[in-house]
Amino acid sequence: MKIISRKKGPLINRDHLTAYLFLAPWLIGILFFTLWPFITSFIMSLQETNLFSTKFVGLDNYRALLSDRRFIKSLKVTIKFVVISVPLKLSFALFIAMLLKDKIKGVNFFRSALYLPSLIGTSVAVAAMWTQLFGPSGLINDILGIFGIQGKSWIANPKTALYVLVILVVWQFGSSMVIFLSGLKNIPVSLYEAAEIDGANKIQSFFYVTLPMLSPIILFNLILQTIGSFQTFTQAYIITKGGPINETLFMVLYIYNKAFTASEMGYASALSWVLLFVILIVTGLIYWTSKYWVYYES
């Protein structure tokens, strides 16, 4: 177990075996539970297939994508959604986590209460209450009515529909908040004390202590939220159905429509693999920039 022994020796040595032993459950999972569905979906992407009859068409599905205006639209909508919702949600979650990290009166209550929206998930009940808020006779319009502004449906308006969904996902900021909270708690108090001795005020210590120390967690949340945001489906599926005029037609909703409404499983699979590569590239870029702003202790 000498550190030097890691660098030389046979291709697989005892250390490597130990490592693979640690990885074993996950590796078994990949091989037995994930690989086969993945391969199947890739093969399907090369076929013209409704659920049941198939014909090999090579890259035709991928070629057809290029002239599919709904695909282009959905890609644009999805990217717009990711770019707006991810930073908003993360800064929101970090802001609340900063407020709730210290022991103040009732902090347990506030943490739980603010986590509640994320626990509700995306059920029919959520759809009902969200549309009640933003519908033509919803709360928002009632409030605007007090000021004499006559609002229409925010959800059915092509200019605002996407933002209604942005507000919904930002509202469910709980899981990012929890991760930030545990990250904030991991920052040694001594660092803050040192900063204070050096004469830093609260804002300075946030930028010079909190942010750098939290950067691995920020990176994590950023990457995960980006992936999750690219895959947003349920919110649009239960609330806007992709409309109006495709302004909320997220990629995964389009994939779902193609797979289960139009019964074009092959095309849907091709779309999925394109989405995988888009996400891979975007997260790869984020990862690449991380060496400039993420600080690791070790």
């Binding site: 199947t40 995964v252 994939i255 779902y256 797979a259 999925s272 996400i279 997260t283």
Partner: peptide
């Protein structure tokens, strides 16, 4: 990371069969 990136919708049926 890639296992997080493929939309689950197209995996539903193959996984069920498995």
């Amino acid at each position: 990371m890639a296992t997080l990136m493929l939309p689950q919708q197209v995996l539903l049926v193959p996984r069920y069969v498995l």
